[in-house]
Simulated assay, not measured.
Amino acid sequence: MAPAPSWPLALRQGVALANFTSWKVGGAAEWLAEPGNQAELVALAAWAQAQAMPLRCIGAGSNLLIADAGLAGLTLCNRRLQGSSLDASTGLVEAEAGEPIPTLARKAARLGLSGLEWAVGIPGTVGGAVVMNAGAQGGCTAEWLKSVRLVDPTRPEAPFDLPAEALEFAYRHSRLQAEAWIVLSARFQLEAGHDPAAITARTSANLHSRTSTQPYQQPSCGSVFRNPEPHKAGQLIEALGLKGLQIGQAQVSPIHANFIVNTGQATAADISALIEEVQRRVMTGRGIALHPEVKRLGFGPGG
């Protein structure tokens, strides 16, 4: 096992990653660190590069399935990499990668900045929202992102910026899903000059709509499958009578069929098997392929 760096960064060994995912599943990280600023993240990436070890970065763990066997190498969790600046006059917003996207949405609303009202119910970080082109209720990250600051783990000494146009955004997709680059921060261009009370009310209404129709009281990852337009994944699954379908302690939510919940002691293998079973039944019953929007780590090549 590689020696830890000599500088005072908190690296830990054998940390259970179940505590870092919203599904509450996943094996241990060989090494885990939670950098508190961009300089620490870059230094840790450089250490991993020098050790020739795998490097992965996670955020809130809300759209993530980590294998029961855990992850080799260094896992960076950016949830401490928080902070944002918002200009009420221009609508320009800059946020660190670990800033919770609901927090940023509320800050924007209080300043009368419109554009992130949809994001208040998404339990993820700014970095994750950029990578996945997160969206809800008719809005998505790509509509408002201006640019992103990145670090390439193979050249961590040279962080760089890319405009949103270079990220190849599509539905729940960005170029970053195929790259090893790590998001450090993001800039958004929102609409300034709105009534803060009106934007706050709209934001709160969006949150109520999500929490009243989705199983927020149980561990889940949010929506499991992308909507195969013009269909809705949840409607397809429900129409086949799959609400409540269970493998081990992983269950298709009785509240919302596009959610898989951990009913107690589910494993990542349980969840993975249930995802595949739902895919099989929807293909057999409707001839439609469901594609997960969940990011999988530790499941083999590319995962």
Score class of each variant (00 low, 15 high):
P3Q: 13
P8S: 11
L9C: 07
K24E: 14
K24N: 08
A28N: 12
W31C: 12
L32S: 06
G36F: 02
G36N: 08
G36D: 05
N37R: 07
N37Q: 10
A39V: 13
L41E: 02
A43P: 00
L44I: 07
W47F: 11
Q49G: 13
A50P: 00
Q51Y: 00
A52C: 06
M53S: 07
L55Y: 06
A60I: 00
L64M: 12
L65M: 10
I66H: 07
I66C: 10
A67C: 14
A69V: 12
G70V: 09
G73L: 06
T75L: 13
R80T: 08
L81T: 07
L86R: 09
S89A: 15
E94L: 02
G98N: 09
I101S: 11
I101K: 09
P102F: 04
P102M: 06
T103N: 10
L104H: 03
L104K: 07
K107M: 12
K107R: 15
S114P: 00
S114L: 14
G115I: 10
G115E: 08
W118K: 08
A119Y: 09
A119R: 11
G124Q: 01
T125D: 08
V126D: 06
V126C: 10
V131D: 07
A134Q: 02
A134R: 01
A134T: 03
G139V: 03
T141C: 15
A142Q: 14
W144N: 13
S147C: 12
L150N: 05
P153F: 12
R155E: 13
E157P: 01
A158G: 00
F160A: 12
L162W: 02
A166C: 05
L167W: 03
E168D: 14
E168Y: 00
R172V: 03
R172N: 07
H173R: 15
S174T: 04
A180S: 14
A180N: 11
I182R: 04
I182T: 09
L184T: 03
F188M: 09
L190M: 09
E191V: 14
A192V: 04
G193V: 08
G193Q: 10
G193W: 05
D195C: 13
A197K: 12
A197C: 03
A201C: 07
A201Y: 01
R202Y: 00
A205N: 08
N206F: 14
N206R: 09
S209P: 00
Q214H: 08
C221F: 09
G222L: 11
G222K: 03
P230C: 02
A233C: 04
K243E: 02
Q249S: 12
Q251G: 06
P254T: 13
I255N: 01
I255Y: 04
N258I: 01
T263D: 02
T263W: 07
G264S: 10
A268E: 04
L274T: 03
I275C: 07
Q279C: 09
Q279H: 01
M283P: 00
M283H: 12
M283G: 01
T284P: 00
R286G: 01
R286S: 14
L290A: 05
H291N: 08
R296M: 13
L297K: 03
G298V: 05
